[in-house]
Every structure is written in structure tokens, then in C-alpha cells.
Design a protein around this nucleic acid. Structure first.
Length: 573
DNA sequence: GCCGTTTTCGGCCCGACTGTTTTCAGTCG
């Protein structure tokens, strides 16, 4: 069991918390957090990189010292510094950072004065009124701690992007109706289109004294007001989601949007760049010796740093600023580049629309093609097609196609990959199809090696073209299964196969990080909706979001090709 | 602990809100 990127990042983050409580150099703490973020977002496993002799110090935020530590962690599967430091503190102490309003300084204070070393001890002390004697702790703090104790694990919940949209849109409409409000823009990770968001950030420009924040907190869905100042407010909604508001004047709109869109790491890099040019950048604008010189639009802010506009989806401080500086930003794929959908279901299996309805919906979206890929007959899938029904469907598709001009339904199937890597349909059933999608819907608990080899074996079948939702994750419900994704991608490339970016907002599988990995490996991806109804063909935009976050350009995506070129690419030697 | 179009040493983004303070530290984003 080797340690992978997420575990190494977690070790650094937990180490940073302890360093902070210890009162270590805050910049050292930040260095560990930066390194953790770098590792977390790396398109390749550090263990694999080390195996191939890559120099980790070339990664942002990783110098000689951390490179050595990472190598040690990978080879020993232990983080010695962390284990040593951990011994100096009670095991539950770091959990206290979960309580809002309690940070490293207060944790240290509580531990010294009251020997509080866990969430349980903290709530016990609050209940008995023992916190009152500690400087900085009053009635409000005590009540807040008890409230957290009641809800307990209420925090840390993230929401799917599609869910966040449903919460955000009516709130935005509510804010637009407030007198004096000019622009209302959703920022934060929502605007960067992360697959999940922890909270919503809303930026408002308004005339002076429009008292937007005071109205903001009166929204009907608000369950708790966390903060309410003249230009800034935070609430928690009944749905559990936190919403932060920021109000600025129009001339600060661009600067505030950069600030509020983040990511935090992207902003820090921009501001540091500004410093070197003698500029101060904050949410109100770009300043030269206290003189405002820009900030009305985002473009103006980047321009002051000698940079072109950077798309929000790229703002993760993962090389986008360096790429911008040398004019090498990717020209990101857009919804308009998509020429068709390569994975959709009908009522023949578990979909709800007819073949005709799906074709009509695809044509009305301007597509040149739509693959109908109903499930194969296999356990766990209702109404899967056996060879006879699949052949009958293909004949029906041919009859329909005869009526279309400039549009074609592609005969396909989403065939189950059995635990041993064989397929749930015989070759004779696959051969006549335009494309075959292989998918895993069972035996999620294989080892990474077994699961990888199972899927590679499926790709050894010369009729298989695309592997659907490669990790099988359901966001917030089911973890991705173990998989050696780099090996799988290389195997796909060698065989002339492709992997899918499933655009269902509950899947988004492959993820943004894996999109970037595929691009680096020269593997094209299919962005497919897996639609089970006509309307959900619109989920394509969620797939596009993640592809853009993964730096994909039109050329990196299979279904940006016209029909003729697509069929040529699908042909396996 | 990282990093360099001022620097291999001495910096490290910047500002708002809260609670409890009698002028601001701590926390958060």
C-alpha cells in the first residue's frame, strides 16, 4: 500500500495544524499548506514521478527540504516529523480547529489554562461556564461552542455544483431586486466551476449606502446570520450552505471579482507579483503609491501585471499565471465546440425518452450525431438489451437515420465489463455497432491492480472504443474505486481507445485533475452526458466545466470532431 | 520552508468582522 497524493497532502495539512498550534513560523506553516495543495492537484502520482527520477523541486512551493521529505514519506510510508510532533500534543487537540472562531492561538490558550484537549472537553467546559475566566472568551463564544456541539459534524459538507446552482439562482434574483443594486455576480469556487462547492460567494456592486448587506440577511431561506457588516455579510441557509456577500463600488468591480473568485493561492501569487512591480492589489483595485490606477474590470487588473485575462476555471495557481506570462494559456473548449453526444439512454433500457425524442433533442441542440448506448443485459441494470434487442434497435436507428439530413444516430451500447474483464455481449453483437462503450457497474472493491487490469482486458477487445465513468464515483455518495489511472490512460492510448468524462453532475468522472493528466499523456477524452432523458442532454455544460478546469482545448476532446472525422478516430486499426 | 527583473537573505497578500477590548488580537476568506 503505497501512499498516494491525497494521503501525502493530508499529512502535510495535519502537520501544518500542529505547527500552528505550537506557534511555529506562520510562513513555514503556509509552506506546508502550499505544498499540500500542489500535491493534491498534481496530475501525476508523486510516487510514480520519483520512480522515474523526476525532480520535485520543479513543482511550485516545493524546495529541497520538502522534496526530500516527500521522497522519505514515499519510501518509508511514514512522515517522521509529523509523528514526532504528534507526540507533543493530545490526539484530539487538532480537532478543535473545526469550531468556528477558534484558531491555533485560542487552542493553545485553552490547553494551557484549562487543559482542554478535545471537542468533548471544550463543550464540557462551555457547559459548566468555565470558559468565562479565559481572556477573549465571553458569553457569545460559549453559546457558539455549545451550538456547534449540538450539531456536531455539521461542518465540512460540500455541495454538488448543480445543487449549489439551484440554491444560488433564486438568491441572486432576490438581491437584484434590492434598490440601488447594480451587478450581482456569483464568484468563488462556484465561478471556478469546481465539481463541489463548500460555500457560495456573491459579489454585489451598488450605489453608496444601498444597505445591501442588511437586506441580504433577511432572505427567507436564511437560518442563521454569521456576520453582518456594512460591506460584508455571511449567512447559513436552511439547506446548510453558507453564503458570503461582499459589496463594492462599481469602479472596484473587476478587482473585487478577482479577489472573490480566487482561488486564494491564485490571488496571493497575483498580489506578490504586484508587489514586485510596486503595486498594491486588493479587492478595491490596483494601487500605485495609494493612487487607484485600475480595477473596473478583471482584464484591467491582469493587464497591470502584464498578463492577459485568465479564465476563472484555471485560477488554481497550478501554472496558469506562468502560462499567461509567456502567452501560453490554453484556448479552452466551450459548449459551442461540441458536435455531438456519445453516451445516451432510451426507454429501451433505463432511460425515459424514446429514440425519436432523443434524436430530436440532440438535433435541436445543433448536434451532428448522438450515440444511443443503452445498457447490455446484465445484473444490476434494469431492462438491459440482449443481442436480439440490440440488433432490432440498430435496424430501427437505420430507418430513422434515412430520414435525417446532416444528423446521424450512432448505434452503440454501454456494455458491462464483467469482473474478469470480459464483456456482457458477444463480439458478434458488438461488431455491427458504430461505437462500443465499456463500463464497470459491479465489483468495485477490487485492488487497484485488479481493477486496472480488468478494464485494460476489456480494451483488448478490438470493438471497444470508450470507457465510461472510469472511476465509478458518485459525488458525496460513493468514493471512486481504486485504479491506476495513469496506466489505464497509457493502455487506452496504445489501443486507440478513449476515456469518458461523464458529465452527469453527480459523477463528473473523470475529474478535472484527470483531464489534465490525459492531456499531458496525449489521450483524447469524450465528454458525454449519459443522458437518461431528453432534457439532461443539457448536462453537457457540466462536463465542459471540468474539461476547462483540466486545461482541455477543442483538439483534446473527441466529440468536437465532425461526424466523418469522429468515425475515422473511432476506427481501431 | 520557499523564493529571487531589488534579493542566496530577508522578506513572505490584504482587508473585514467579531467579541470583548478600552485600542485590538484573532479568525476568516
Amino acid at each position: 500500500m503505497t501512499l498516494h497524493n491525497p494521503q501525502i497532502a493530508e499529512l502535510f495539512n495535519r502537520y501544518a495544524v500542529l505547527l500552528e498550534i505550537k506557534g511555529d513560523n506562520p510562513f513555514r506553516v503556509r509552506a506546508y499548506r502550499n505544498a499540500a495543495r500542489t500535491i493534491e492537484n498534481l496530475p501525476r502520482d508523486v510516487a510514480a514521478m520519483l520512480g522515474e527520477g523526476d525532480d520535485l523541486t520543479e513543482l511550485p512551493g516545493i524546495g529541497d527540504d520538502l522534496a526530500h521529505k516527500i521522497a522519505d514519506i514515499v519510501s518509508t510510508e511514514r512522515f517522521a516529523d509529523f509523528e514526532k510532533l504528534k507526540k507533543q500534543f493530545p490526539p484530539g487537540l487538532a480537532d478543535l480547529t473545526e469550531v468556528p472562531g477558534i484558531g491555533p492561538k485560542r487552542i493553545k490558550l485553552l490547553h494551557q489554562k484549562l487543559k482542554i484537549d478535545s471537542l468533548a472537553a471544550l463543550t464540557e467546559a462551555a457547559r459548566k461556564g468555565r470558559l468565562r475566566g479565559v481572556p477573549g472568551f465571553g458569553a457569545k463564544m460559549e453559546a457558539g461552542i455549545l451550538r456547534v456541539a449540538e450539531k456536531h459534524a455539521a461542518g465540512e459538507k460540500r455541495f454538488r455544483l448543480s445543487v449549489a446552482e439551484m440554491v444560488a439562482e433564486p438568491y441572486v434574483r432576490f438581491l437584484r431586486r434590492i434598490k440601488g443594486v447594480r451587478q450581482v455576480t456569483l464568484a468563488g469556487s462556484f465561478r471556478r466551476r469546481r465539481d463541489t462547492v463548500g460555500d457560495l460567494d456573491i459579489l454585489v456592486t451598488a450605489v453608496p449606502h444601498a444597505s445591501v448587506a442588511d437586506r441580504f440577511v433577511t432572505y427567507g431561506e436564511v437560518s442563521e446570520v454569521l456576520a453582518n457588516g456594512p460591506t460584508k455579510a455571511s449567512v447559513r441557509l436552511k439547506s446548510g450552505i453558507q453564503v458570503d456577500l461582499r459589496v463594492v463600488a462599481s469602479r472596484s468591480y473587476g478587482a473585487a471579482l478577482v479577489y472573490f473568485t480566487g482561488s486564494k493561492a491564485h490571488n496571493i501569487t497575483l498580489r506578490t507579483m504586484g508587489q514586485r512591480r510596486g503595486l498594491k492589489i486588493n479587492e478595491y483595485g490596483v494601487f500605485k503609491k495609494d493612487k487607484w490606477i485600475a480595477g473596473r474590470t478583471e482584464k484591467d487588473v491582469y493587464e497591470q501585471l502584464g498578463l492577459p485575462y485568465i479564465e476563472p476555471e484555471l485560477r488554481e495557481n497550478q501554472g496558469e499565471i506562468e502560462a499567461a506570462a509567456i502567452g501560453k494559456l490554453p484556448k479552452l473548449v466551450t459548449l459551442a465546440d461540441i458536435k455531438g453526444d456519445l453516451h445516451a439512454h432510451t426507454e429501451a433500457s433505463d432511460g425515459s425518452a424514446t429514440l425519436e425524442d432523443m434524436a430530436h433533442a440532440a438535433r435541436s441542440r445543433g448536434y451532428e450525431y448522438l450515440a444511443i448506448s443503452d445498457h447490455s443485459k446484465y445484473i444490476g441494470v434494469t431492462h438491459g438489451l440482449d443481442p436480439a434487442r440490440l440488433a432490432a434497435q440498430a435496424r430501427k436507428i437505420e430507418r430513422l437515420n434515412a430520414k435525417f439530413e446532416n444528423f446521424r444516430i450512432l448505434r452503440s451500447t454501454e456494455v458491462d465489463i464483467l469482473p474478469d474483464g470480459s464483456l456482457a455481449l458477444p463480439d458478434s453483437a458488438l461488431k455491427p455497432l458504430d461505437l462500443v462503450i465499456g463500463a464497470v457497474h459491479s465489483k468495485f472493491d477490487l485492488s487497484a491492480r485488479q481493477q486496472t487490469e480488468r478494464i485494460i482486458r476489456a480494451m483488448d477487445n478490438r470493438y471497444v472504443n470508450i470507457i465510461a465513468h472510469p472511476f465509478g464515483r458518485l459525488i458525496g455518495e460513493r468514493e471512486p474505486y481504486a485504479l491506476d489511472i495513469e496506466r489505464l490512460m497509457k493502455a487506452a492510448r496504445e489501443r486507440g481507445c478513449f476515456l469518458e468524462l461523464n458529465a452527469q453532475p453527480s459523477r463528473l468522472d473523470l475529474s478535472d485533475i484527470h483531464c489534465r493528466m490525459a492531456k499531458k499523456l496525449g489521450l483524447k477524452l469524450a465528454i458525454s452526458t449519459d443522458a437518461h432523458t431528453a432534457e439532461t442532454l443539457d448536462y453537457m455544460r457540466f462536463g465542459i466545466d471540468q474539461a476547462r478546469r483540466g486545461w482541455l482545448e477543442p483538439d483534446d476532446v473527441l466529440n468536437t470532431r465532425g461526424l466523418k472525422e469522429l468515425l475515422r478516430l473511432l476506427k481501431r486499426d
